[in-house]
Every structure is written in structure tokens, then in C-alpha cells.
Design a protein around this nucleic acid. Structure first.
Length: 487
RNA sequence: CGAGGCGUGGCGCAGCCCGGUAGCGCACCUGCUUUGGGAGCAGGGGGUCAGCGGUUCAAAUCCGCUCGCCUCGACCA
């Protein structure tokens, strides 16, 4: 990718704002998602929501506020989130009409402070207690679309905001085996969605105990690598064991009439995925959006020299748009007289529209149009009918090509490494994924993190067991794990 | 939380050192000419200079305090 590693951060902020995805809000760490960014998020949400329904999940909604005492019920869970909680302590403010000052009314303190949810396990499991009596109530498969708040010290637009939007699935099962299968099934669903819709290759695996979700028995993850060589956790799925069932006393009667604690999972993906798309496919001209999620799949730009030409060309452009919309495509005709064609070319490239059609006086005479591909920059003229017919296949081909391009990039950024010195060298120079042996201890993991900034992103599923020596301690290792510096 | 940077029309910035009529580019409004890779000319509108206090005849500018945001780190399912 033609964006130098050192400038990616600057590029990213500029693109997010100039492309109209989002902007910084008056509240530190929180962003305003603008219409184009929201349309993109909706195009991510919709197919995901459909997939959850197909797999038997139901949507529900739980409160934004969580009583402080609820968080305290699962020891590891509260430990994990304690450092980043926003807390509501009062329910009223006072106004002074003379000074026009507004202040918190000290008389109005809540008896029990409310935590703005950083995640909803606790309030959901409190509710589940009342929903589950018998094995006949299981499995209980619930999903929630919501906003959550984690008071991040170092926010970044989309990638790590203090408030973010996500879905969180929460399920309850009669057996450990069934819950584990559910956690793995949803991880597979995430993998398929991210690769197929976002054209982002991911590596599936399990987290080390140190990187596990607070309160989970096992955390599974899909990890990807962005253009600057930094890793991003794109989605997670947790096997929670009976931890939350015990904390919230959720039991069921099994077929033998015995009381048992329920087994649980939770899983989520967030608006972070928008950041992943930007930093997987973008180039120096701006965004490159995969056709399946692009708010506009084809932009049509009419070009005219006089008012007479304008009328006939614009009407031809809308005619072409109608044909394409009839095929179920998302099309926009940019007939805004405020801007000239060159301005529009740049603008829609910045916004990442996969295909562009330019239609001018020359084309009107020959019944042709010019097609331009965003991801290659290639331009070619086609007879109008042929173009209309072939655009769906071109969009599909673009979707696949973006995935293959990202896959090749990540492959080139992935290094199988057998010496610690080499690992440090690669991390310093270009970043990337490092596949190396690890002795399985948290001490080694933390020491490597301390010295290199790299963490174990996951213990990948799809690697063959391979005996080796730990890159750090020299002790025996059963398989390679995936290291990287991460967002 | 540590280190840097920045708060001046909607956006990006200059002016501050050396106090004295708030300026430039983009955007916006009007008109004409333009339109196949970010158009040109002419005219025009818009700013409590982050806030509070101090020094001074006079403060965007000097002094003090406060607030906010950004970047880089530490931290972070």
C-alpha cells in the first residue's frame, strides 16, 4: 500500500473526517457518526442481524444503567472493567437564574450509583434468572444491539471510542459442551461475515489466559492485520462456563429433576469494524469500500458543456441508474451543477465508491460510457447495454479481488520467526504478524510485551502442532502462536 | 496518567516575540463566463480572538489561573 507506515495514523484521521464518516464530538473520546458513516454501519448491521436470526437468536433490549452491586457479583469481571467505568451518581441538576450557572444538586445523590454499561453480562444474567426454570427453557439465545461505554484513556475514531455501538449475544445452555459449541459457532459466523462482506481476512484462535475476557473460561477471537502492520481484534466469542450463572444464581431443573447452574456464552462485534475496513483497503486517495457494504456501489457522473446537453445527459444518466437499481444495486447520480466533473471524481474516490460511470457528450453520440474501478484506478469505455449488464459481475469480482489483495498483503506481513532478535527487528521495522514458539507461561508473555510491545493475539486454530523451543525462554513449546503489536 | 502540541469567522491557518483599525486560503451569497481529473473573474456577508482575573490611556498580543481538544506513550473484552 502506498501509505507510509509512519503516516497511517494521520492519514486515517483525515480520511475519516474528509470522507464524511465521522467527526470528533465535544465529548472527549466520543464521535459523531455522520450519515455516510452511519449508512456504512447499517450495511454491516443488516446482514449480521439476519445471520443471527437465521441461527435462531432473538433480539431484546436491556437497560443502559447497571447497579454498581451487580458488577461486583463476578469478581474477575469487575476487576477487568473497574478502570474504565462511567458512573451516574446524581439524578438532578440545579440552575441559578441570576448567574446562569448549572450545577449538580448535592441533595440528589442516588442511593446506589449506576454504572453505564461497559458490557451487559451482569444485567442480562440478572434478568435470565427469572427467565429460566427448566431445561425446557434452554437454550436461550438472545442478542442485543446497543451502545456501551468504556472510559478509554487513548481513544481513536471507530477503533477505540469511549462510547461505541455493537451487538452483544448472550446465550444460556444446559450443558458445557453445548455452550462451547455455541461460542465456536458464532466465531465461525463472524469469520464468514468479516471475510465475505468486509473482504477482510482473519485468523481464528483462542486467547491466552492473560488476554481472556474478564469472567470468561475461554475467549475466542478473529484477528486481522491492518495496512500499518498493527493487529486488530475484529470480533470475540466467549465461553463463560457457569461463572455468571453462579454469580446471579441462575439454575435450571434437568430432565432428572436435579438443579444445575446454567452454562453461558457471550459474543460481540462493534463499530470498530468500520475502522478495520478503512485500514484494510484504503489507499492514498481515500477509502476503498467493499461493494457488499458500500452505501453507494456505483456513482454516475454526467458531464455536459451546455444547458441543452445537460438536460439530455442527465436524463440518460437517470435512465441508466434506474436499470441498475432494478437489479438491486445502490446507485447515485451526481448531477449537482455546483461542481465540475474533476471535483466529483476526486470526491467519490475519497469516499471509496467501488465503480464510477462517467457519461458525457461523446458517449451520448456513440451510446457508450466510461467505467472506472476504484481499487485499481483502471478506466475503460463500454457500450451502454454491455456495461449495465456486466456491472453486477464487476462488483462481485471487485469484492473478491479486495479480499485476495488483503490476503496477499497480510501474508507478506506475516513472518515465521525462530529467534527473539529477529522478532524484535521485524516489529521495529514494519510490524506485522509473527508466528513463533511460546512456552505457555504468562511470565514469558508479559516479558515479551514489556520488551517489544507485542502481545499474543491468539493461539491459532489452524496450525499443525509443531514441537519447538520458546523464542524467549528456550523451553519446550507445542505450537506457534501469533504475536503482534495491536490497536 | 506521563510527554509534546493547539484553542483567532463553518474548516485550515497567519498575526503574538516588539500592545495601537482583526487578516489570509477554502467554504458560503450574487452575477457573468465555465464543466471529460478538485474552474476563472468581479462584488459581498460572517469573528464575545477558549474562559476568568491582572498590568496598561489602550490587550488576540504582556502576566497569572482555569477549561477543553489533538498527537505520541503507559493502560485497555
Amino acid at each position: 500500500m502506498p501509505i507510509p507506515m509512519q503516516t497511517v495514523s494521520e492519514w486515517y484521521n483525515e480520511i475519516v473526517e474528509r470522507a464524511g464518516l465521522a467527526e470528533h464530538s465535544p465529548v472527549r473520546g466520543c464521535m459523531t457518526i455522520k450519515p455516510y458513516g452511519w449508512a456504512l454501519w447499517e450495511n454491516i448491521q443488516r446482514p449480521l442481524d439476519e445471520a443471527f436470526r437465521r441461527t435462531g437468536h432473538q433480539n431484546a433490549y436491556f437497560p443502559l444503567f447497571i447497579p454498581l452491586s451487580f458488577l461486583a457479583k463476578e469478581a474477575q469481571h469487575v476487576e477487568g472493567f473497574a478502570q474504565e467505568c462511567a458512573v451516574v451518581t446524581h439524578y438532578r441538576i440545579k440552575t441559578n437564574p441570576e448567574t446562569r450557572n448549572v450545577s449538580i444538586d448535592p441533595e440528589a445523590a442516588l442511593e446506589e450509583p449506576l454504572v453505564v454499561r461497559p458490557t451487559s453480562e451482569t444485567i442480562i444474567w440478572d434478568a435470565f434468572r427469572g427467565w429460566i426454570q427448566s431445561y425446557r427453557d434452554l437454550p436461550l439465545l438472545i442478542n442485543q444491539w446497543a451502545n456501551v461505554v468504556r472510559w478509554e484513556k487513548r481513544p481513536r475514531l471507530f477503533l477505540r471510542t469511549a462510547e461505541f455501538l455493537w451487538q452483544e449475544g448472550h446465550t444460556a445452555h444446559a450443558t458445557a459442551e453445548e455452550a462451547l459449541q455455541e461460542a465456536l459457532r458464532m466465531l465461525d459466523l463472524y469469520e464468514e461475515f468479516v471475510q465475505e462482506y468486509l473482504a477482510i481476512p482473519v485468523i481464528k484462535g483462542r486467547k491466552t489466559p492473560n488476554e481472556r475476557f474478564a469472567g470468561a473460561v475461554e475467549t475466542f477471537t478473529i484477528e486481522t492485520l491492518l495496512i500499518d502492520g498493527k493487529a486488530l481484534q475484529a470480533g470475540t466469542s466467549h465461553f463463560l462456563g457457569q461463572n455468571f450463572a453462579r454469580a446471579f444464581d441462575v439454575k435450571f431443573l434437568n430432565a432428572q429433576n436435579e438443579l444445575e447452574y446454567v452454562w453461558a456464552t457471550s459474543w460481540g462485534v462493534s463499530t470498530r469494524l468500520v475502522g478495520a475496513v478503512i485500514l484494510s483497503h484504503g489507499d492514498e486517495k481515500g477509502l476503498i469500500l467493499p461493494p457488499k457494504i458500500a452505501p453507494i456501489q456505483v456513482i454516475i457522473i454526467p458531464i455536459w458543456r451546455s444547458e441543452e446537453e445537460r438536460a439530455s445527459i442527465v436524463s440518460k444518466a437517470h435512465e441508466i441508474a434506474a436499470h441498475l437499481r432494478a437489479k438491486g444495486l445502490r446507485i447515485k447520480v451526481d448531477d449537482d451543477p455546483q461542481h465540475r466533473p474533476g471535483w466529483k471524481f476526486n470526491e467519490w474516490e475519497l469516499r471509496g465508491v467501488p465503480l464510477r460511470i462517467a457519461l458525457g457528450p461523446r458517449d451520448l453520440e456513440t451510446d457508450t460510457l466510461e467505467v472506472a474501478w476504484r481499487y485499481t484506478g483502471e478506466k475503460q469505455t463500454y457500450p451502454t447495454q454491455e456495461a449495465i449488464q456486466r456491472i453486477p459481475e464487476w462488483l462481485e469480482a471487485t469484492q473478491l479481488a479486495l479480499f485476495e489483495r488483503a490476503k496477499a498483503r497480510i501474508q507478506s506481513q506475516t513472518h515465521v520467526v525462530d529467534s527473539y532478535a529477529e522478532m524484535r527487528d521485524i516489529l521495529e521495522k514494519a510490524g506485522g504478524f509473527i508466528l513463533a514458539h511460546w512456552d505457555g507461561t504468562t511470565e514469558t508473555e508479559l516479558a515479551i510485551k514489556e520488551e517489544t510491545g507485542a502481545t499474543i493475539r491468539c493461539i491459532p486454530f489452524n496450525t499443525n502442532p509443531e514441537l519447538g523451543k520458546c523464542i524467549y525462554s528456550g523451553r519446550v513449546s507445542q505450537q506457534r502462536v501469533l504475536f503482534a503489536r495491536a490497536y
